[in-house]
C-alpha cells in the first residue's frame, strides 16, 4: 500500500480497536470508543513510517494493538506473513523478540525497582539468550551504543535524567536485535535540545542495525526530519498516507493541510496561511456520518456528510480518504468555493 515493489515487513489489515463504555447506574453498555476504525497500512523493511494526528486520534492505540499490548477488536497484523492475532500467548511471547516499543514517558516506562543492567538484560533472560556473563557483556555494549557510561549499569532509573532514561529505553528495546521498533511519542516528553540528540541516535541506530521504525508523534517538524513516509490519522481512521516530501509540499487531505499550517516556520517566505479548524474533535464514541472530518472541513461539500470516502491511491504511493482531495498527484485539484 505504498507503491513499493518489495514485500512489507508488517501489513496491518482492517485493524479496529474499540473500547467498551459502561454508563449509568446499572453499567449498561454505551457506544464503544472507536479508537482505531478499519485501518490498513504496510510498513516496509528498513523504513521509518510516521503516524501523526491530534491527541486522542488513536495513533498510540495503533502501535499498541499492532504489538498486541492491547487486544484488537477486528483485523489482522501480518509480521513477515505471520498473523500476530492468530498466535497463542506463548507464540506471541516468542515473536516479541522481533518487535519492541519505546514509550513516551522516560520516567514511567522503566521499572523503578530494577537496576539499569537488569532492565536491559531482562528480555535476554526471558528469551534465554546467552549466559549470565554474555548478557552482562551485551548490556555494556548496548549502553555504549546508546551513549551511556557502562559503569552506570548498577544504578536505578531515578538516578538518571530524562534523556538518559530514554537512552536506557532504547538500549532495552535493542537488546534482542528486533527488526521493528514502535516509537510511541518517544521524544515528546524531552526538552528540545535532548530531543534532537535522541532523534540523531535513533537515525544512527537505524543505519547501524537496519531497523524499521513505526514513529508515532504529534510533532510534524520531528516527523519531517525522521520519516520516509507519513500516515495522518483523524478519529481512528487513516486519512492520508504519502512520502514525507510530497505530503509536506502538497498535502492531499484538508486535515493534513490544517496540521501543516500549524507548524511554526521562522522564515516568513516559507510560512503558510494558518488554517484554524472550527469546532471540536467529535467524540470517537459517536463519530459523524460520512467523512469523519466533514464537520470541521473548510472544503466540505454536501455529499461529504453522506458518504464515507474510500481510502484510495491518487498517485503512486499517495493514498487519501477524501472525496475532493486537494491534489491528485502533481496536479492541484480545483475546489468549488
Amino acid at each position: 500500500m505504498n507503491g513499493t515493489e518489495n514485500k512489507p515487513l508488517v501489513s496491518i489489515q482492517h485493524l479496529s480497536k474499540f473500547f467498551p463504555v459502561k454508563k449509568g447506574l446499572f453499567r449498561k453498555q454505551g457506544n464503544p470508543v472507536k479508537a482505531v476504525n478499519d485501518l490498513s497500512l504496510d510498513i516496509y523493511d528498513g523504513e521509518t513510517l510516521a503516524i501523526v494526528g491530534e491527541s486522542g486520534c488513536g495513533k498510540s492505540t495503533v502501535g499498541r494493538t499492532m504489538l498486541r499490548l492491547l487486544e484488537p477488536t477486528a483485523g489482522k497484523v501480518l509480521y513477515e506473513d505471520k498473523d500476530l492475532f492468530a498466535l497463542n500467548g506463548e507464540q506471541m511471547r516468542q515473536m516479541r523478540q522481533h518487535m519492541q516499543i519505546i514509550f513516551q514517558d522516560p520516567f514511567g516506562s522503566l521499572n523503578p525497582r530494577l537496576r539499569v543492567k537488569d532492565i536491559i538484560a531482562e528480555p535476554l533472560v526471558a528469551h534465554k539468550v546467552g549466559s549470565r556473563s554474555e548478557r552482562m557483556k551485551r548490556v555494556k555494549e548496548l549502553m555504549e551504543v546508546v551513549g551511556l557510561n557502562a559503569e552506570q549499569a548498577d544504578r536505578y532509573p531515578h538516578e538518571f535524567s530524562g534523556g538518559q532514561r530514554q537512552r536506557i529505553s532504547i538500549a532495552r528495546a535493542l537488546s534482542l536485535n528486533p527488526k521493528l521498533i514502535v516509537c510511541d511519542e518517544a521524544v515528546s516528553a524531552l526538552d528540545v535540545s535532548i530531543q534532537s540528540q535522541v532523534l540523531n541516535l535513533l537515525e544512527d541506530l537505524q543505519q547501524q542495525f537496519g531497523l524499521t521504525y513505526l514513529f508515532i508523534s504529534h510533532n510534524l517538524s520531528v516527523v519531517h526530519h525522521l520519516a520516509d513516509r507519513v500516515g495522518v490519522m483523524y478519529l481512528g481512521k487513516l486519512v492520508e498516507l504519502s512520502g514525507v516530501e510530497e505530503l509536506y509540499r502538497r498535502p492531499a487531505h484538508p486535515y493534513t493541510e490544517a496540521l501543516l499550517s500549524a507548524i511554526p516556520e521562522p522564515r516568513p517566505e516559507h510560512r503558510r496561511d494558518r488554517i484554524v479548524l472550527q469546532g471540536d474533535v467529535p467524540s470517537p464514541a459517536n463519530p459523524p456520518s460520512g467523512c469523519p472530518f466533514h464537520v470541521r472541513c473548510p472544503h466540505a461539500q454536501p455529499d461529504c456528510g453522506q458518504n464515507v470516502p474510500e481510502f484510495r491511491e491518487i498517485a503512486p504511493g499517495r493514498w487519501v480518504a477524501c472525496h475532493y482531495p486537494l491534489t491528485t498527484g502533481s496536479v492541484e485539484a480545483v475546489h468549488i468555493q
Binding site: 499498541r64 504489538l67 499490548l69 500467548g89 511471547r93 516468542q94 515473536m95 516479541r96 523478540q97 519492541q100 516499543i101 514509550f103 513516551q104 514517558d105 514511567g108 516506562s109 522503566l110 521499572n111 523503578p112 525497582r113 531482562e122 528480555p123 526471558a126 528469551h127 529505553s169 532495552r172 534482542l176
Partner: peptide
C-alpha cells in the same frame, strides 16, 4: 496501567513475571 508494566509485556516476559515482579512489587 503504568508504561513499565506494558514494557515488561513487550519484552516478552511471562504473564506471572509481569504481574508479580513488575506490577505487584511496585
Amino acid at each position: 496501567h503504568q508504561d513499565y508494566v506494558r514494557t515488561a509485556r513487550a519484552k516478552g516476559l511471562k504473564e506471572n513475571v509481569v504481574i508479580y515482579k513488575h506490577a505487584l512489587k511496585n
